[in-house]
Simulated assay, not measured.
Amino acid sequence: MRAVTILVPTLLGGSLGSASGSELGDRSGLPLPRFVSVKSKPANVRVGPGVDYPLRWTFVRRHLPVEILAEFGNWRRIRDADGEEGWILAALLSGRRTALIAPWSAAKPVRLLNRSRQNARVNAVVEPRVLVRVETCTGTWCYVRAQTFSGYVRQSRLWGVYPGEVF
């Protein structure tokens, strides 16, 4: 099978630049893997694709980004920012794009800028693991929002978007 980059419309009206070599989900017809967010709270994550499987964990916070890795009926196999995997009912997920600011960086804050340039004015300094809504990405920079701040951040400083992804 040869690698192909697929662009498809998202629920937000943009396009999703999927990872090279992606395939389409049997049920949704959307690229795999892809990022989405948790819509409901609580949201149970199970060991397998069905309610008969034991719980692995429960999301108690909405809008957290997760990566869909596989589909089975109405179930999605996901990975969270900590690398944990499990199965969640598709109805508990949303196409809204969110991200965590550099969750791998224990103490180094990230600067949000007023323009998509390294020498731009700083709008905010954000701690790792802060949740943001991703509005757009150019492949290098993303424009993000939270309740009290907004700005541009290097795409490589977010967990919830792929390197080079444009939307």
Rank of each mutant, 00 (worst) to 15 (best):
A70I: 02
V144S: 10
T138H: 03
F167C: 13
S156P: 02
S22F: 00
L12M: 01
C142G: 05
G164M: 08
Y143K: 09
G21C: 08
K39Y: 05
D26Y: 04
E85L: 06
G13C: 07
P54L: 07
R96I: 02
F35G: 03
G139I: 04
R61K: 15
Q118M: 11
E165Y: 03
G17W: 02
S105L: 14
V45W: 06
L112T: 06
R129P: 00
T58Y: 04
G86L: 06
P33E: 10
P128E: 10
V134G: 02
G160M: 08
I88W: 09
T136Q: 14
W104C: 04
F35T: 02
V66E: 05
R129F: 04
W104L: 09
R133L: 11
V45Y: 08
V132T: 09
A102S: 15
L64P: 01
I88F: 07
D82Y: 12
A70E: 14
L16Y: 05
N123V: 14
G25V: 04
K41Y: 07
A146Y: 04
V8Y: 07
V144T: 11
Y53V: 00
M1L: 12
P109Y: 03
S15W: 07
L30M: 11
R77C: 12
V166K: 11
R154I: 09
N119D: 15
L69A: 05
R62K: 14
L7P: 02
F149C: 06
A3G: 08
R77H: 12
P103G: 13
D82W: 13
K108A: 13
L69W: 03
R145D: 12
D80Q: 12
R46N: 06
P33T: 12
W159Y: 14
Q118A: 13
V161Q: 01
A106L: 12
G73Y: 01
P42N: 10
H63L: 11
P31T: 11
E23V: 15
G17K: 07
G164S: 06
G21E: 06
V4T: 15
C137W: 01
L93R: 00
A120V: 01
R77P: 01
A70T: 00
I101W: 00
V38S: 00
E84P: 04
E67T: 09
L93E: 00
V66Y: 01
L64D: 09
Y143W: 15
A19D: 06
R76M: 00
R157S: 15
R56A: 13
E135D: 14
S116T: 02
